[in-house]
Design a protein around this nucleic acid. Sequence first.
RNA 1: GGUGGGUUGGCCGAGAGGCGAGGCAACGGACUGCAAAUCCGUGUACACGGGUUCAAAUCCCGUACCCACCUCCA
Length: 473
Amino acid sequence: MTFRLYDTATRGVRDFVPLVEGHAGLYLCGLTVQSEPHVGHLRSGINFDVLQRWLRHRGFEVTFIRNVTDIDDKILAKAAEQGLPWYALASAMKRELDAAYAALNVAPPTYEPAATGHVPEMLELIAELIERGHAYAAEDGSADVYFDVRSWPSYGELTRQGIDDMEAAGDADPRGKRDPRDFALWKSAKDGEPSTASWPSPWGRGRPGWHIECSAMAGKYLGPAFDVHGGGVDLRFPHHENEQAQSRAAGRPFATYWMHNAWITTAGEKMSKSLGNSLVVSEVLERVRGIELRFYMVASHYRSHVEFSTEALEDAAVGFRRVEQLLDRLGLGADREETPTAELPAAYVEALDDDLGTPAAVAVLHDTVREANRLADAGDHDRARERGAAVVAMLDVLGLDPADPAWRASGGAADREAALTSALDSLLGALLAERDAARASKDFATADTIRDRVKAAGIEVEDTPDGPRWSLT
RNA sequence: GGUGGGUUGGCCGAGAGGCGAGGCAACGGACUGCAAAUCCGUGUACACGGGUUCAAAUCCCGUACCCACCUCCA
């Protein structure tokens, strides 16, 4: 079977046919670095990370571009509020975003272009649009340049909307526009804006409109035509519609497939600072580990709306620990020395081939875990390990292999935790030896007293065929 | 007004005409000194009302409710 992908433009699942055999060019609209990222922001990154991993697994050479919007109205406004230069805010938030991606093992893209680094490319594209009669300098003498939606007959094709059915932009500044739906390619510098926030252009000093950056950067790094373009559902309109219009109006075929992920909401509403319901990644990571959060996010389909709840998150974490326990049992966990190779189960391959069907893939994962446990229970260590190796291979594709060095938290906190664990282990050693001796002489009262005392301290002791094992509750 | 999506068992979450995806929880059993872990087993779930069909959670018609986008949004 071939890999199939749901394409927003055609509203159906289609075979993935790359423009260049064996190669896949991906573009993901990254984030505007204006505040600390919440879990919803990370969904597109995780989704494209899985896409990238799956394509690579299937033998494609992948070029993956994920941009960063580092200049826009919000950044300017927030920076002003906080008394910071806009670039300082953008830069600080970019570091937060990088940390969040790293904490969830989202592999870096091939290249991560920033809008501010691509003004010349944007100016070139704008000039070409003017030349072709699809854009015009504002008629009010400002440096604004607008895209002329009426000049592009297929405007609205991505989201199937007719220009005349669209609501006119209520809050958009209509000055100098031929049609209220025309959108800015270049925004003139305004009084009170920092001088560092504008660049020279043939039409006057200003800064890029929101949409033009993606067209310019996708064109630069992936060429006039590329395979998959993605982002959150909210970007379909206007952002992606406009990107496509301006790119195609400039003679570039642009994306072949459009991939949009659904929202993660809390309390039925999208996350937003103003609603006070943002689940900032750094806070969620105080509750569960990064690998558990990633598992939770990967276990539902990218096109399904997810209602985030801590209960569901913790259920998922419990389920994932079961998988990890199986790996530990077989010596294939985080500390394993070598990774045996294994084929992916056919059902798993079929699941991911079908529009990245991660829920079905996770079901196969669980089935395989159960099988491995059954074999191990029966003492068939070799076959159990074989199944375990398949589990590792499946986890790896999803970016969930516990042995992936990416999960090794860096910095002092992790080192300290390792030191504490080792200290506890040596202290517990004597107690557990005492308990073992009591059990051996069938003095279960003493054995249970020790277990209860340790439990009161927040440590659970389990007896396994290989001796007692302890863990923090 | 236009465009698109949704409503599935105690909870989460797949599926898209015919065997109950999977997980969490619960209950029973095996194992265990007792537990834990693991394994085996246990559920008459598809918003509502009609219809089509041998067969509908799935298709059609209608109704209700929810959500997203319509130029700030992951």
